[in-house]
């Protein structure tokens, strides 16, 4: 089985979010970048398929050269090959198109992406990609088993879960649950050394088409102060929630 894991390079969850160039671009100054958390669960599940079922695991990122440290980290965790499509990601459709081209050339059976990346929260690339390459798609995937060319997956739905089955090729939008938090791997020294020798291919982009473009960014207005209510005076809280906030 050939697996491709889509890796998004995103600001660490604790980053301060600011914008530059007249509020038209994210300010990367002082920001630390990490593997998108949803993708990290998927990558770890891919490692399981590699170790238990002999799958091969490649990763792909659409981005400029600054994404390479994040890609090397994935190689250190155990991916065999990395492919960077050398383009500035503008919208989900363009990114999906680029990955579709990589996917077609590589004849992958399973493509693992994250439910959404935590920067622009689009949640679009995996579903678009699946359509573009004619693969099945399972979103918000919290469990995945592959037997031959058959997949069984669990999808989180509003208020519960659903078990689905289909044939490969399959694209998933993964998240926590694919593996548990405690299963995530921190690259060790040996992995880091080996990653330096693994291939990181740079591929030229195939499309310039975009459909949605960010024009500007803003931040929410600062919040007013909290109203503290005495622990002995629960009636006051209920009064505020009912009459002031109209929330109950």
């Amino acid at each position: 089985m050939k697996i491709l894991v889509c890796i998004s390079h995103v600001p660490d969850t604790t980053s301060k979010i600011n914008f530059t160039d007249n509020d038209t671009a994210f300010d990367k100054n002082g920001v630390q970048f990490v593997i998108n958390p949803n993708d990290e669960f998927g990558l770890t599940r891919a490692m399981w398929f590699k170790e238990k079922q002999g799958a091969s695991v490649d990763i792909v990122t659409v981005g400029e050269k600054d994404v390479e440290p994040t890609m090397r980290k994935c190689l250190a965790i155990g991916a065999e090959k990395a492919i960077r499509v050398d383009a500035k990601p503008v919208d989900a459709f363009q990114v999906a198109k680029e990955i579709a081209d990589v996917a077609k050339n590589g004849e992958y059976d399973l493509i693992i992406a994250g439910r959404e990346s935590i920067d622009y929260n689009g949640g679009m690339v995996p579903g678009m990609l699946a359509r573009l390459i004619g693969a099945h798609f399972i979103n918000t995937c919290v469990s995945l088993e592959i037997e031959g060319d058959a997949a069984t997956a669990v999808r989180e739905i509003d208020g519960g879960k659903e078990t689905l089955s289909c044939k490969l090729p399959l694209v998933i939008g993964g998240q926590k649950g694919l593996v548990e938090e405690k299963d995530l791997r921190i690259p060790n020294m040996r992995g880091i050394m080996m990653a330096r020798k693994k291939p990181l291919d740079v591929k030229q982009p195939v499309t310039e088409v975009t459909k949605v473009e960010f024009k500007s960014f803003s931040k929410p207005a600062p919040k007013g102060d909290v109203k503290l209510v005495d622990a002995e005076n629960i009636d006051e809280l209920i009064n505020l929630l009912h009459n002031e906030a109209k929330a109950i």
Partner: peptide, 19 residues
């Protein structure tokens, strides 16, 4: 242009749909 949440509610972006 539509206003949408980005960076998990830490900011908004104005997204221009050009199609």
């Amino acid at each position: 242009q539509v206003k949408r949440n980005v960076f998990t509610n830490k900011a908004f972006g104005m997204a221009d749909i050009t199609t």
